[in-house]
Amino acid sequence: MKPRSMLFAKKRMPRWILTLVLLSGLTVAGCGGGQDWQTKDISRLMPELQFTLTDEHGREVTADAYEGKAVLMFFGFTHCPDVCPATMARIAGWLGQLPEADRERIRVLFVSVDPDRDDAERLRSYTAHFHEAITGLTGTQEQLRRLSKRYRVTYGYGDKDENGDYDVSHSAGIYGFAANGEARVLIRQSDDREAVLADLERLAKTVD
């Protein structure tokens, strides 16, 4: 019996190796994502838009309020010296280059992760400075942690200086959601304008 089972094991082995190789190949292929989006495709990687926050008018708002619109979401804080204003200006620039019909189909959510300093009034004046399609949101630490965890980003606070100011480390990506709330793209700082505009137009097309 023993020699036969050894022989059996030896004959089967290459098939198992082949299966393993094929499976790992399929896994890698499956992780590749689609090629249609020109920035980072996150269709199969991230969950649909969902949150409960407070908007720049002090009203509690959920993701349902933006159903039927393509949504861009960015995490930041209004005291941010560089990344946030630069990103807001870039977004405003992109929106200005889109056809009006597409522009009206897109809403931009600026989620402040610094609720201690960013109240509704400050958020309102900050977003108004960049573009009317941008809405400022913030929330309790619990709400913000839940949302940032959902999109696998984080934030943290540096030490206060003598004026009580402090740095906030936050994500630099812009999440793009289709009109039905499904995650579609992650726009990085390194993505070029043409790629972003093509994806924004495509996102806008998800609106009926």
Partner: peptide, 13 residues
């Protein structure tokens, strides 16, 4: 590893 430039960090690093 661009992800770490996108995702934010728990403290400024």
């Amino acid at each position: 590893y661009e992800y770490y430039e996108v995702c934010g960090s728990p403290w400024p690093i």
